[in-house]
Amino acid sequence: MSTETITWRDRAATVGEKVQNQLAFVLSDRMALVGVLVMVSFVFLGVFGPMLAPHDPIEDDIRDDEGDLLRLEGPSSVAPLGTTVYGKDILSQFLAGARPTLIVGLFGGLGTGVLGFLVGLVSGYYGGWVDEVLMRLTDLTFSLPFMPMALLLLTFVTPSIWLITVIIAGFLWKMPARVVRAEVLTLRERTFVKSARASGAGHLRTMFFHVAPNVLPIGFLYTAYGVAWAIAAAASLAFLGFGDPTTTSWGRMLRMVFDSGNIRVAWWWVFPPAIGIAAVTTSVFLIGRAYEEIINPEIQTEQ
């Protein structure tokens, strides 16, 4: 049995078909469908939000007809979502704030997923001392508490959105790594892997072409979760005052309203960023859960 007869195109076609089937299945779950809709609008806001914003979120002051600064005004025709205590337009801040939130989520999630997937794959496939070293490394990141360490690092270096993304991925990769490794451990002993080796496929080829495709769904799942975790972590850091000071993110908006002591009155300032973050993180998990039902055969019992 030669593996060479399977061309790249065949491979891509089967993977494509699988993805399509799974996608259709996920979309048949009503909760996941809502989640997908929320995510699509979020990505739209992240890409076009700053262009749609009627004002500059930080530079422009909102004034009434007499030219007085509108401080902490509720929603009106001038500012549909009201103004901040500094007289800035909240709608514009909300629209512009989607982008940094999307960037951290997307790249933090991808970084988490890819790094964790590779570590888990290599660790599980090779076993032995490679596994021992990599797993002790994951133990180490598990034993370093994320929040305090991130706060510590961010006090000494000026937080930038990319640095925050790197720190988040640097802490979160351990989650997919452990799960992917456990999965690879069971796959390694299966016949198709052994026959690939026996028919002359090298370690790298066996690992990436025969083992990896079977754990890819879990990799996707944890990349998606990584997106939600990264958004939550970045928002939390921003809320504690350790966000990128140059951008308006949803987390930073919440920091501003909390810090200025206006939570009590300015609901129009609190709700847009708070609901935005909550909707996005919840959606990711709703989609993830529906997907998990498909790829985890053990919870797929007849209903």
């Binding site: 939550a232 939390s236 909390f258 939570i263 909550a278 919840t282 990711v284 998990f285 709703l286």
Partner: peptide, 29 residues
């Protein structure tokens, strides 16, 4: 089952400070 999954998914995936702020606004203010 559906209700409890939506409810707890919201509660565990939303950053805890946001839930806390919602609760403060509702129950305190």
């Amino acid at each position: 089952e559906t209700a409890s999954i939506i409810g707890t998914t919201f509660l565990r995936s939303t950053p805890v400070f946001i839930t806390a702020i919602f609760f403060v606004i509702i129950f305190s203010y």
